[in-house]
Simulated assay, not measured.
Amino acid sequence: MREARGIEQEGRTVRGRVVAGTCGSLGSLTALHRARAEARARDAELWVVLAWQPPLGEPGGRGRGGGTPLLAASRAAAVSRLREVLATAFGEGTPGVALAGLAVRGTPGAALLDTVRDADDLLVVGTGSRGPLLRALRPSVARYCLAHAPCPVLAVPPSPLQADLDAVRRRIVWRRPLDSADLAR
């Protein structure tokens, strides 16, 4: 991967990489757009990483079989999801920077840190909105990356619209009436 440094692309020299993690959530799309802006400002490549793990953990490890076909199907699903995320984020056009999409097998934090190679790289992660229950069930990828990354990490908070969307969803779940004045802010 180091040979990709300093390559000529469309008449300019591309230096460094901006690595961004994504899962397709609104928070990760916000981080992805920020990563694109950072890649443009730095004349860097944008590497978008989607981490995946096979269902049921490691195939064959629990006596369930499945092996290679299950792994191939899981990887194909991850690659398809990554393509959907990139199409959602950037549309059918180009993002305006050199782009590489990677579907990496592993946990999100480890997959991102495996992709980052140099201290020159920039790692961009979304912080997401995390309530106490979610914090207890799933560790924070952003926190893991901030603690272990060998390069600078940019932690992007969720869009302010995300909080409004979450509030509307909670009202719908709890069957509380929506106040149109709250939506018009």
Rank of each mutant, 00 (worst) to 15 (best):
S80R: 12
R62V: 10
G60D: 01
W47T: 15
V141G: 11
S140E: 04
R117V: 06
R83K: 05
P59A: 05
G66A: 07
A149Q: 09
E84Y: 11
R17Y: 01
V125E: 10
V85D: 13
P157T: 00
G126Q: 08
L71A: 13
S74H: 13
D182C: 10
S140W: 04
G21W: 15
G24E: 11
R169D: 06
A103Y: 02
T115P: 07
E8W: 02
R176I: 10
V14Q: 14
L165W: 03
S159Y: 12
A163K: 14
D114N: 01
R169G: 11
A31T: 02
L178N: 07
L161A: 15
L82T: 05
P55S: 08
T127A: 12
D120R: 14
P54H: 13
A100Y: 13
R42S: 06
D121I: 12
P158S: 06
D164M: 15
A103Q: 00
V168Q: 15
C23R: 06
R143L: 07
V19M: 01
G109L: 01
A100E: 13
A142R: 02
G63M: 02
V19N: 08
D179T: 04
L133E: 11
H33Q: 06
A31P: 00
C151K: 05
L32E: 05
A37N: 04
R135W: 12
G65L: 05
R185H: 02
L122R: 11
A147P: 02
L99Y: 07
A100M: 07
R105M: 00
E58F: 15
P150E: 12
A167D: 09
G61R: 08
V125I: 03
S129V: 13
L82F: 04
L71W: 10
A76I: 08
G27E: 14
E8K: 05
T107W: 01
I172A: 14
L70F: 14
E38N: 02
A149R: 13
R143V: 02
P108N: 04
V85Q: 10
A136Q: 15
L50A: 03
A98Y: 00
L56W: 14
R12W: 05
V125G: 09
G11H: 05
L50S: 00
P69H: 10
P160S: 14
G60C: 11
L56E: 06
P108M: 01
D179M: 04
T107C: 02
A147L: 11
P54E: 04
L113C: 03
V104G: 05
L112V: 11
L183A: 10
A78G: 15
G91H: 01
L154N: 08
L70K: 14
R15E: 13
S25Q: 12
D118T: 10
L32K: 03
A76S: 15
L161N: 10
L113E: 03
A119E: 00
P95Q: 06
L32I: 02
